[in-house]
Amino acid sequence: MDFFPDPPPPHEEGPEEHRAPVWSGAPDDVLPGVVPVEMLLARSSSTAVLLTGFRAFPEGLAMNLGVRVRGPLGFRDLHAEVFDGPYHHDTGEQWQAERLKWGFEFADGRRATNVDPPVWGDDDRAWNDETWRPDRPVLSGQGGGGGPRSVDRDHWLWPLPPPGRLRVVLQWPQQGIATTTHDLDAQPFLDAAARARPVWEPR
């Protein structure tokens, strides 16, 4: 007689796969169209902010925001500054006013920034209903990393911008960077999105 019970019979089907909402991040099963943007967004005596690596998908744009610093580091925590921290005082009024802020303005006037309030609020459908969409554009931070003087973080802009001017705005008073703007033409991003294609053939 065996001491341990028999294992349960295997399930015929695995657990239901959950797909992240299209507005929350770039799809992992689509080969994007690439737009060669190499932009120095802003620079102070100690800090430079770069915008590169645009990948266009049918639902939005992925890109990389890079921060480079020079000079004495002291107690500066670059990761916390770029990754939405430092959390021990991120509700402080002064820190909120001086933190890294950046975003996009579409040709139709709609805006998306890294300091917008969450789009889902109290609506449970945001993550459970695949047909749910936010009522405004979304700029969300994704993964990334780096070292004490160089940090890169991916971001996702949803949806695709309409044709016309695509404005990038950034300010970082804490690092001596006043509000700066750069105007891009949205058409190359739309053309690149049209080149995107699925990684897998349909089953």
Rank of each mutant, 00 (worst) to 15 (best):
D2E: 08
D6V: 08
H11P: 00
E12R: 13
E17R: 13
H18K: 05
P21D: 03
V22L: 12
W23D: 01
G25P: 01
A26K: 08
P27S: 02
L31E: 14
G33W: 01
G33V: 03
E38M: 13
L41V: 13
S45C: 06
T47P: 01
T47L: 14
V49Y: 05
L50F: 12
L51N: 08
T52M: 08
F54Y: 04
A56K: 07
A56H: 04
L61W: 14
V69Q: 07
G71W: 14
G71I: 06
P86H: 09
Y87C: 00
H88T: 04
D90Q: 07
Q96M: 10
E98Y: 03
W102A: 03
E105N: 00
A107G: 02
R110W: 06
R111A: 00
N114V: 01
P117T: 00
W120T: 01
D123C: 06
P134Y: 14
D135E: 10
R136A: 14
R136G: 08
P137L: 08
P137A: 09
V138P: 01
G143M: 11
G145H: 08
G147N: 11
G147I: 09
P148M: 12
P148T: 13
P148E: 13
P148L: 12
R149G: 02
V151R: 05
R153V: 07
P159F: 09
P159Y: 10
G164K: 12
R165K: 12
A178L: 14
A178H: 12
A178P: 02
T181A: 15
D185E: 15
P188V: 03
A196H: 09
A196Y: 03
P198W: 08
V199M: 13
V199T: 09
V199K: 11
V199I: 13
W200A: 07
W200L: 10
